[in-house]
């Protein structure tokens, strides 16, 4: 098991280097003059001396590859550079907002599972019934709606028409107890969870259908086990294995979704920071957020691979 984990971590390193290189070169190639952005003035008002000072101070006078290696070495030590706009360290301002994004994404994940597990299992158990068709139809509709639009519709109906919930999040943690947090998080989390719940419902349904046709389920039934024991003791555990991988892929989609959802609901996470940084052309921050999101995505998928290998020995013993 440990060799498997070690191998997967080592495999992640070249990926990380390529990702950081792509992100770095992308923003390096961006048209626009960083010195103007740092000084907050137009090109004409900057003297060559001032320009030279700023360039030296920010390391902009170095050649591309040296700047890239500096970026990588600093990033490895948790230094993602300094914001052009606020002059604060990028890593600190990302970490300040990261927990809020985690709370939103976590809530969305829980919500998606709360919807998709019962729906997917019921659909599979009552194969070809009305519930089954309804679940399948809902799942297709769920992946077809733009998530952020669903969020806007929630605001229009629940906040503006029915006055049940606030339009923007005033709290984003449990500091004032569970209930205020629930009221603040339920709309953004629903909008974020929509696509995920839909994909998972489909996946759980088809995976459960596969498992229910297996010999060991038939055997469990024929030895006289109660239907409950067959389903929850034998079938469900095995049906959930492929679902775990889907969750990994969905986390990536959720990060993109978080950028839009956070800006709709004024949720103070890194997604909203990203949108603000783009409008201010604060490239170090954009670069930092993109890198942090890619790393988070990789960590989630690494964890999922490990869980997968743990529940299914065939994988870790392969090769």
């Amino acid at each position: 098991m440990w060799t498997y984990i070690l191998r997967r971590i080592l495999q992640a390193i070249p990926t990380l280097l390529v990702i950081s290189f792509l992100i770095f070169s992308l923003l390096y190639l961006t048209p626009g003059d960083p010195v103007e952005l740092i000084m907050g003035t137009e090109d004409e008002q900057i003297s060559p001396e001032q320009r030279a000072i700023v360039e030296r101070e920010w390391g902009l006078d170095k050649p591309f590859l040296i700047r890239y290696f500096n970026f990588v070495f600093n990033a490895a030590r948790g230094d993602l550079g300094t914001s052009y706009v606020t002059s604060k360290p990028v890593f600190a301002s990302i970490m300040e907002r990261y927990p809020a994004t985690l709370r939103l994404a976590g809530s969305a994940m829980v919500l998606a599972l709360l919807i998709s597990l019962p729906l997917g299992i019921t659909a599979a158990l009552r194969h070809n019934s009305i519930i089954d068709s309804l679940a399948t139809a809902l799942a297709t509709v769920g992946v077809s709606l733009p998530k952020f639009w669903f969020g806007l519709v929630l605001i229009i109906t629940l906040s503006l028409k029915l006055h049940l919930l606030p339009t923007t999040a005033t709290v984003n943690d449990m500091s004032q107890g569970f209930w205020p947090f629930f009221k603040a998080v339920i709309m953004p989390a629903s909008s974020l969870a929509l696509g995920m719940a839909a994909t998972q419902t489909r996946m759980i349904r088809s995976s459960m259908l596969d498992v229910l046709n297996q010999d060991y389920v038939r055997y469990a039934r024929s030895k006289g086990l109660k239907e409950r024991a067959v389903i929850y003791g034998h079938a469900l555990k095995n049906a959930l294995i492929p679902v775990i991988t889907v969750i990994g892929g969905e986390v990536g989609g959720m990060m993109g979704g978080a950028v839009v959802t956070e800006s709709i609901f004024s949720w103070p996470g890194i997604g909203r920071l990203a949108v603000n940084s783009i409008s201010k052309r604060d490239y170090p921050t954009i670069q930092g957020i993109t890198l942090i999101m890619c790393i988070s995505y990789m960590i989630v998928n690494l964890l999922i691979d490990i869980i997968y290998a743990w529940v299914d020995p065939r994988i870790r013993l392969d090769k």
Binding site: V18, I23, G252, G253, M255, G256, I278, T290, C294
Partner: peptide, 22 residues
């Protein structure tokens, strides 16, 4: 395929956003 896998390991909308920012 290594390159393809790396591209797939990006959260894709995030990368699209970064590209559009550029």
């Amino acid at each position: 395929m290594r390159f393809t896998d790396i591209m797939l390991s990006f959260p894709f909308l995030i990368i699209a956003i970064a590209i559009m920012a550029v």
